[in-house]
Amino acid sequence: MLVIQSLTKSYSPEKKAVDDLSLTIEDGDIYGFIGHNGAGKTTTLKSITGIIPFESGTVTFNGIDLSKQPELYKSNIAYIPDNPDLYENMTGIKYINFLADVFSVSQQDRDSLIPRYADAFELTGNLGSPISSYSHGMKQKLALIAAFVHKPRLLILDEPFVGLDPKAAYTLKEFMKELCAGGGSIFFSTHVLEVAEKLCNKIAIIKEGKLVRSGLIDDVRGDSTLENLFLELV
């Protein structure tokens, strides 16, 4: 379970990018995070993955505090940014093995999981090519494969469906559901409200750094559609 309490992050003294944000993501949740451009979604995701420091608040996963035990915390999560810049001089398979080494994935797991995910995302044949030759979508698929291979308990994704072809997007959704069915959880930002509506069981809406609504998707939207609610709130 990921618990974010009173998270605050500023880039300048005048304006808070994330302001006193609190959120709980329970095991099995597929939690959508929506808001307009510049609302603070990416800053929140980067803060809770340890990429950028934050001024105040706590972030814990299953009781492990990000600030106090960053390595242990990060060993449970995987993060994929909206525009994954990877090590261009590596081949795809080298990159997957690099992350597998860092996350201490056993050889047995690699041998079963790498072909499984690479085949599903139709990238196996390209794994021997340098990442510098990959398209944006291929890089995104590679980042996803490398993330799934180390079996994260929590998957944090920033706009995961942008750049993916329809088949890959479908495959990703299936793997997301599978991960959550196995007790894992997913927290992802998106602008595609239809995806959020169909895929998520919970949703959070952020506006100017503040959380304006969060909870079970049916409770949040009530009788309205998610699109109408979003337009009304932000």
Binding site: G92, Q107, R110, D111, T124, G125, L127, S129, P130, S133
Partner: peptide, 13 residues
């Protein structure tokens, strides 16, 4: 140079 004929082979951790 790109190739699409890579076949997964077990590496070493």
């Amino acid at each position: 140079r790109t190739s699409s004929d890579y076949i997964y082979t077990a590496g070493s951790a």
